[in-house]
Design a protein around this nucleic acid. Structure first.
Length: 448
RNA sequence: CGGGGCGUAGCGCAGCCUGGUAGCGCAUCUGCUUUGGGAGCAGAGGGUCGCAGGUUCGAAUCCUGCCGCCCCGACCA
């Protein structure tokens, strides 16, 4: 993508309403634009990040055996009256009436709808287990939206639902998602620590939240520093191997980790040696529940078993805050100059900077490199604007692409370009003819 | 919903107290000079001063009502 043809309205100063750094940076980079309190438009740069996060989620969900589908944003109130949550949800639920005076709502989540779909389409034990997910916009009319997309009213969420015959099968489905979440967040370059959680209005008795650490996190967290030493980016898993999956869950839940609501200071003190006790703040980016028959029971979601008897299905639900993740990642990864994207979620793999647009030598070298880098399969943002060097550097640093390939008159004379690593600040002169190879190696996807 | 703050050009702000039809920086456009970390000079465009009433010869400024946004608290992915 040529910057001259891209839409990325950069602001030198952050609008006053932005309080936390992720919100400020997202506005300054032209990633989002607020439409009204808690509701945002996603401009091209921001939407690219959203898309990359979705891609990573999709990949790992597929691997764990979950099937993607899409349910609507608008739901009939009828379904929610069935489960009893129409009243429970209160004012958080945005209620709408259509022209025929039918009561509708903008979905805050989809347990009722998915249960309705499964109960009417699945009749036999032979069709189970079943795990379905979708990525869809949700709406919760928060009392006080804040911090940009971190806590918006409209938000993009991946929500998945499992249906099994027995509690034991359900437990396995839960465990699979637990592991899938570890792998998903790791694939984004994040360490999301699983913490035992309260079940909230969704109910049930088995639940974990996944939190990434950041100073601006909304919840206070207490955990064993042993989590820091764990390497969870590379382990492989056979999702059909129940014991292996359960073992990973066991491994990651045996260490102490709790949010404020679930924190037990006595246990913390007895189970964790003092030097390993960490207190910090975290942002919740995922939440999984196993709730058994909470919805299938009242909604009559049953199948016939091999013996001809009715079985009420065991369910769980699994959420990831997709739009929130964009902000959470920035909170966890930025410096004074701007965002520092982890490679897997970066809106582009690299920025190609022509320091002297209009100069025959740098123009020719830049154009050629751009063509070759794109041909090599890299996602390139090519700064072909006629701005000054300083402005170009500042802008690249601000939007935080992992690599900057700088083509300047000085280097071109020597037949080199400068490659800068955004995260470390390290610069290296690389001969022109080696740039493509160099960048391909640098950006190559880490095999999961 | 309780407490606080703010609404003036795309962004950041001044002007309001003490009424006289709007200004600064950045951004944008034109020209020239510049060109490896947010350039210089010269010129230009852009504002229903959140909305509606009222007071007044005259309102961004004073009065009343409404709307919106932000921050703190209870609630949450």
């Amino acid at each position: 993508m040529r910057l001259s043809k891209f839409f990325m309205p950069i602001l030198r100063e952050a609008p006053r309403e932005a309080e936390i750094v992720s919100h400020q940076l997202m506005l300054r980079c032209g990633m989002i634009r607020q439409e009204t309190s808690g509701i945002y438009s996603w401009l091209p740069l921001g939407y690219r990040v959203l898309t990359r996060i979705m891609d990573i989620i999709r990949k790992e969900q597929a691997r764990a055996g979950s099937l993607e589908m899409l349910m609507p944003t608008i739901q009939p109130a009828e379904l929610w009256k069935c489960s009893g949550r129409y009243d429970d949800y209160g004012k958080e639920m945005l209620r709408i009436t259509d022209r025929r005076e039918n009561e509708m709502l903008y979905g805050p989540t989809n347990e009722e709808m998915i249960t309705d779909i499964v109960r009417s389409s699945v009749q036999s034990y032979r069709d189970l287990p079943l795990n379905l997910f979708h990525i869809q916009w949700k709406f919760r009319d928060e009392i006080r939206p804040r911090f940009g997309v971190m806590r918006g009213r409209e938000f993009l969420m991946k929500d998945g639902y499992s249906f099994d015959l027995t509690a034991e099968d359900g437990r396995h489905a839960y465990n699979k998602m637990f592991v899938a979440y570890l792998r998903t967040f790791a694939a984004m370059g994040l360490k999301a620590i699983p913490m035992r959680a309260e079940t909230g209005p969704i109910g049930g008795n088995m639940s974990h939240e996944f939190l990434i650490l950041a100073e601006t996190g909304e919840s206070q967290v207490f955990f064993d520093s042993a989590f820091h030493e764990k390497d969870w980016s590379t382990f492989s898993i056979d999702y059909d191997d129940r014991d292996a999956v359960a073992k990973v869950v066991e491994e990651f839940t045996s260490m102490y980790a709790a949010t404020e609501e679930m924190h037990d200071p006595k246990r913390f003190a007895t189970e964790v040696p003092e030097e390993r006790r960490v207190t910090g703040r975290g942002i919740e980016v995922g939440h999984i529940f196993f709730f058994g028959t909470k919805y299938s029971e009242p909604m009559g979601c049953t199948v016939l078993g091999p013996d001809g008897k009715e079985i009420t299905l065991q369910s769980g639900s699994y959420g990831i805050g997709v739009s929130r993740l964009v902000a959470a990642i920035i909170e966890a990864s930025h410096d004074d100059a701007g965002i520092v994207w982890p490679q897997p979620v970066a809106p582009f793999d690299l920025g190609l900077v022509n320091l002297r647009q209009g100069d025959a030598a740098t123009d020719a070298a830049s154009e050629k490199l751009y063509e070759e880098l794109v041909k090599a399969g890299l996602d390139v943002l090519y700064d072909d604007r006629n701005d000054r060097a300083g402005e170009k550097f500042a802008r690249m640093d601000l939007i935080g692409l992992p690599w900057q390939v700088v083509v300047g008159p000085r280097g071109i004379k020597a037949g080199t370009v400068e490659i800068k690593n955004r995260a470390t600040g390290e610069r290296q002169d690389v001969p022109l003819e080696r740039v493509v190879e160099h960048m391909r190696d640098a950006c190559m996807e880490v095999p999961a």
